[in-house]
Design a protein around this nucleic acid. Sequence first.
DNA 1: ATAAACTCTTAAACTAGTTCATTTTTTTTC
DNA 2: GAAAAAAAATGAACTAGTTTAAGAGTTTAT
Lengths: 200, 200
Amino acid sequence: MNYQKSHTLILNNIARFIDLTELEKQKYLSLLTEITVKKKAFLMQAGEITKYEYFITKGCLKVYTLDEDGAPHISMFAIEDYWTGDMASFMSKDPTNYFIKATEDSELLGISRANYELLFQEIPKFERFYRMLYQRSLISYIRRSNHGISLSAEQRYIEFKKKYPKIVNRITQKDLAGYIGITPEFMSKIITKVNRKQNS
Amino acid sequence: MNYQKSHTLILNNIARFIDLTELEKQKYLSLLTEITVKKKAFLMQAGEITKYEYFITKGCLKVYTLDEDGAPHISMFAIEDYWTGDMASFMSKDPTNYFIKATEDSELLGISRANYELLFQEIPKFERFYRMLYQRSLISYIRRSNHGISLSAEQRYIEFKKKYPKIVNRITQKDLAGYIGITPEFMSKIITKVNRKQNS
DNA sequence: ATAAACTCTTAAACTAGTTCATTTTTTTTC
DNA sequence: GAAAAAAAATGAACTAGTTTAAGAGTTTAT
């Protein structure tokens, strides 16, 4: 069967961990909602109750909170083939603390809370898929939370470039600073310094 | 049916997310290995290949890495009713970077890689259990990784006391410093300062 | 019960990262 | 394609957290 590009992408993502029959694939796709967000528009804002978990099929988004001083702290960047959302709010139905804003025109597939529950009833194999997806995410967040407290800002920047070479060129230095956990001014100094080292 | 204390503890932990029949409970328990670790002994050391994922039934352990300078960075403290291990090494079969050391005489239940796989074949419901367990862990690690980069050491200490009141009195100040990501000297200053504030 | 080995406290000098202010460069908008 | 807005660079003064050192208080092992 021939699927549209975004559907092929999400089915391939799922095929990393579980095999679906044609029927299951179609059932699964029927549970998803297509969403588009223009650059600079919000997919989610603090105070809202999170309705969906998202898979990005095109574009780039940043997920962040604002602290009491209004300074942004970026939790992740999400590009094609990434999953994002606010799982805490999605599960608890409490209002989210996060903003998700498109940094490029973006296209997503969303699964609602009701369909997420339904999915496990209809195709129990998805328990395994999410078990493995969460397991992988967990491994990378454990690493990140350790790096956040044990590495210098410069080392975190070098790690980021190594781990996300595709993302580093699509985001502003300012947003990268918000992810690394430093000011844009200090980010600028680090980049100058690291590039000087590499070119010498 | 009447179970020994450690078995009741782990079965209750699992019952938060899935219901098991008596037969399934017994099957599950048969896949576990009992382990005891004396205070100051290692459950795991960097370079080893991780054989088990662990559930603590008694005691307290610290999970940490050593950086190039030999300074410890504590990833988590695990007490009764907590799960621990190095999932990255457990899954990939690569050598671990972690040390796990008992800070009190401890008792654990371990599941081996082979039995973990077997578990999903024999009792597929466990996919759901681990999906939900990892989902919850993920939520708390996402929060921690954000706090690591966006909160001051003093705020992280206050958060830790609030979130883990049972743990804070069982560990040394030095180990807490290793978790918060600061030196023991600065930890001492923060504690003096925070207690002074509270008593005034 | 005592020595040895840690852990905690305090303080002075230091460094990584912040803040604030200004200028230059790049991107967005009409 | 010019004007406006946002991002990036640079520098000086500042603050949170480190380092080193030394002494006091606790825990551990015999």
